[in-house]
Nucleic acid binder design. Structure first.
Length: 225
DNA sequence: AAACGATCCAACCGCGTTTCG
DNA sequence: TCGAAACGCGGTTGGATCGTT
């Protein structure tokens, strides 16, 4: 005999969460904490599986979530960590208090990947795309030595405002990026992050403050997703 | 104003690992 | 010790929104 099943999947709700469901889940966790995700939906009165509740809490409802756009320095750190850790999003996210692995993964796939490609870098290997198995392909001709980045939307027939990066400029950017990566000491940075007054301690304070004030600052009737 | 395509992101799926009976 | 379920993670999807034609 192993554990009891997480859920029977019959009659369970799927898809986007409603405000009412969010409220139920938050109220339950605020009052009871998290001990076993399997029991959470049942005790909270939700027709969801524990897995779905866990995801909703982690990615959306957690009080210590930092919302808003990623800053440039956050992006740089993500790139640096990705070059060391690869697609281990939860590991990367653990160094950004208030950011979720899902959020970082989405940001990587929608923004940073493109940014690296524009720099002529392979987002997987962080190496120049011209390079295959250690050998550079033939020297690019003049047409190939230009990357064009549109920086403003086109209006009708108007010529788009563009930044032209020739091959040498792209290389300069890549060199800068490599220097940044080389000068980045992952170990000391990780130590520094973990020494920051212990994140768990900080989070518990934040949680407590949030729990104390949750009903006063959240007007659920007017809650906007 | 409508149609279409691109982009974003919340949520789901499936798999490997961990935990428990 | 073993097997089944829970957990956690990374990949993928689908719907909402935005921008362009």
């Amino acid at each position: 005999m192993g554990r009891q099943p997480c859920c029977d999947k019959v009659g369970l709700k799927r898809g986007p969460w409603t405000i009412e469901e969010d409220h139920k889940l938050m109220n339950f966790i605020v009052n009871n904490g998290i001990h076993c995700w399997r029991t959470v939906p049942k005790l909270a009165g939700l027709l969801r599986c524990g897995k779905s509740c866990r995801l909703r809490w982690i990615n959306y409802l957690r009080p210590d979530l930092k919302r808003g756009a990623f800053t440039e320095s956050e992006e740089d750190q993500i790139i640096q960590l990705h070059s060391c850790l690869g697609n281990r999003w939860s590991k990367i996210a653990s160094h950004f208090p208030g950011r979720t692995d899902n959020e970082i993964k989405n940001h990587w796939n929608t923004k940073i990947k493109k940014k690296l490609k524009l720099l002529g870098l392979d987002p997987v290997t962080h190496k120049p795309v011209e390079k295959i198995d250690g050998d550079f392909l033939s020297k690019p001709n003049d047409d190939d030595r230009r990357d064009v980045i549109e920086v403003s939307p086109r209006k009708n027939d108007e010529k788009p405002e563009e930044i032209e990066l020739n091959f040498d400029e792209t290389n300069d950017l890549f060199n800068d990026y490599q220097m940044l990566c080389e000068s980045f000491d992952l170990d000391s940075w990780l130590n520094q992050e973990s020494n920051k007054s212990s994140i768990g301690e900080t989070n518990s304070i934040i949680n407590q403050q949030w729990v104390d004030s949750v009903d006063s600052f959240l007007s659920w009737d007017n809650f906007i997703h």
